[in-house]
Design a protein around this nucleic acid. Structure first.
Length: 574
RNA sequence: GGCCUUAUCGUCUAACGGUUAGGACGAGUGCUUUUCAAGCACUAAAUUCGGGUUCGACUCCCGGUAAGGUCACCA
């Protein structure tokens, strides 16, 4: 090991999928190693064979690779290295990064400790110890094994646990890179188990031996280890080794902000975010900023920028609440930062194959560019391109100026097919009676099939709401619009010409004042395509019919208001 | 219960002992070819409480409160 070189490690145990807390610890270790041109080691701590979950190691590696947190040393550091490892093993040099394959090493160190008088066999049964523990608990005292340390322990034969014989009982003071000076009284020191009766070392023992052997200089880990740090330090002392620097990471909290984020309150498998189409650099950015801040007002950082700006003593001490909404924002920002080629390269993977097959790569790419600003994560693309009939959705979407969200609800092909038909493209699709009734029964586009009913209040543009003659004014606007539209010949009934005849008038009277009631008259809804698109789609006859209906209703209403002052204007009218 | 810690807008956070306590997300309002989305602008929103030290405290000290960690043949 070359001196002065930074070596960090991420040492998970293979007990399930990677969650965000573990990933962030790995991220900080990785950032620090990269920043200092050092080494980042992946080590698997599989000394608890009971809790081990199959496939975890692969999952951990996959997760780190997705995020780009590549390790310089670890299990399978690439084909050549694996070969070299095998070669070294042949000569009895164990280079494994999996603890269960390093048992001889721990035994070697255990023997050293026994010889030095720092370890002894534990002759008690678990029941005996449990009894002492319960007694301590009822007396509200901390349980200390060393109060029961045997006078003449038997020789260790490997079937009993091997315990560390803690040295001088004293106050321990040490320095944590994040927390500053920390200390604990002698009650933090105890005779902990080094090697379990099953022959595997405990975490407390194995991780220290490995950190020594691998030359680790900086240990990042959660604050649950602060309390046991005095034990670790006393072991380093017994071995005569200078301990590494400790950097304690704050926890990531659940939605209530009090408990650590757990599977129960939505902690997801990190690869789940990959499946949902989050960018790894966005995840890294978000995760890094959950408990770290370089100062300044810049927030969107590339991984490279994070490396240069990362600093251990700018890590936060208290826990930070997980926030999906902010993660979404980071993802959106990182999508914006992608160059178009890269965006398309990723996006194309999310478009259903049939769509590309049908429309060709070039058109698909154009469509992808159209929706770029509207996606939060790449899986949104699937919703937009979902079934093979979504051919013109994006185009219609543009025309209709409708938000993506409502289009994601356009799941039924019936709904879609109508839109396609009205877009005068892809005439191949035919309506069935069944699909028609299904579509028309759905509320969102009901105005395309049947005349809507109205709420009087909805007809009024917001600026006019407080005006005493709001209904009279609205009536005037609609009458004028009716006449203007009437001047357009049916053969010339297009979006452009409709807009042309109304536009100047709307500009004079206030666009909202005129266009809002027109649109509501045609759709009966607060949210729908713009009035010209609606009029074009509905045709001249229906357009005139609906507007004149509203005019008639308004006239009636105004008549009533003049007679009785108490008319409920919220009434639904047909 | 012992021990070890932590505390700034709802959330993530910034602030050599001297700032109108800053930014971001979210929210609200407005602008943008009405409405939705996107975009832009603006607004509201915080130093846990009580004592000190100091000319001056988010910052240092003491105490209260609240919260977290730990006291395994788990890591």
């Amino acid at each position: 090991m070359s001196e002065n070189k930074v070596v960090t490690r991420f040492a998970p145990s293979p007990t399930g999928f990677m969650h965000v807390g573990g990933v962030r610890t790995a991220l900080y270790a990785w950032l620090w190693a990269k920043k200092n041109g050092g080494q980042f080691i992946l080590r698997i701590e599989d000394t608890d064979k009971v809790r081990e979950v199959g496939g975890s190691i692969e999952h951990i590696q996959k997760s780190l690779k997705w995020l780009g947190l590549n390790w310089d040393q670890g299990p399978d550091v690439g084909g050549l290295s694996a070969y070299i490892q095998k070669f070294l093993k042949w000569f009895g040099l164990n280079r494994s990064y999996i603890q269960s394959e390093r048992l001889k090493l721990y035994k070697k160190y255990a023997k050293i400790l026994i010889e030095k008088g720092f370890a002894y066999a534990d002759p008690y049964t678990e029941e005996e110890i449990e009894k002492w523990r319960l007694k301590a608990e009822t007396e509200n005292k901390p349980f200390l094994y060393r109060d029961h340390r045997p006078e003449n322990p038997p020789k260790w034969d490997g079937t009993m646990p091997l315990r560390f014989k803690t040295g001088e009982l004293k106050r321990t003071v040490w320095n944590d890179v994040v927390w500053g000076e920390l200390s604990a009284g002698p009650e933090a020191l105890d005779d902990f188990i080094l090697i379990k009766s099953d022959g595997y070392p405990t975490y407390n023992f194995a991780h220290i031996i490995d950190d020594i052997e691998m030359g680790v200089t900086h240990v990042m880990r959660g604050q649950e280890f602060i309390s046991s740090t005095p034990k670790f330090l006393s072991l380093y002392e017994a071995l005569g080794v200078t301990p590494p620097l400790f950097a304690t990471t704050p926890p990531i909290m659940g939605p209530d902000g009090k408990k650590k984020l757990s599977k129960r309150d939505g902690a997801k498998d990190i690869l789940e975010y990959k499946r949902e189409g989050y960018l790894p650099e966005a995840m890294i950015n978000y995760l890094a900023f959950l408990g770290f801040n370089p100062g300044g007002e810049k927030e969107v950082y590339t991984p490279e920028e994070l490396i240069s700006v990362f600093d251990l003593n700018k890590i936060q001490r208290s826990g930070a609440q997980w926030n999906d909404i902010k993660l979404n924002w980071f993802n959106k920002e990182h999508i914006k930062q992608l160059i178009p080629e890269k965006y398309l390269e990723i996006g194309m993977n999310w478009v259903p194959k049939e769509y590309i097959l049908k429309n060709g790569v070039e058109k698909t790419k154009r469509d992808l560019m159209l929706i770029r600003d509207n996606i939060v994560k790449f899986s949104d693309i699937i919703n937009i391109f979902k079934n093979k009939k979504t051919i013109n959705v994006i185009k219609i979407l543009n025309n209709f100026s409708t938000k993506i969200d409502s289009f994601s609800k356009l799941s039924s092909e019936e709904k879609y097919s109508y839109l396609v038909k009205n877009n005068n493209e892809n005439q191949e699709f035919t309506f069935t009676e069944d699909s028609f009734s299904k579509l028309s029964s759905e509320d969102e586009f009901s105005y395309l099939f049947s005349d809507p009913s109205y709420l009087f209040e909805m007809l009024i543009w917001k600026d006019l709401k407080n005006s005493p003659d709001k209904f009279l004014k609205t009536l005037e606007y609609l009458e004028k619009v009716f006449n203007l539209l009437g001047s357009v010949d049916e053969k010339d009934w297009t979006y452009e010409s409709l807009k042309n005849v109304v536009w100047n008038y709307a500009g004079e009277e206030g666009r909202g004042n005129v266009l809002w009631p027109t649109r509501v008259a045609l759709s009966g809804k607060e949210k729908s395509p713009d009035p010209f698109k609606l009029a074009e789609t509905l045709g001249k006859a229906t357009t005139q019919k609906r507007i004149s209906k509203v005019i008639e209703l308004l006239r009636k209403l105004i008549g009533t208001v003049n007679n009785t002052s108490n008319t409920n204007t919220k009434t639904v009218i047909n």
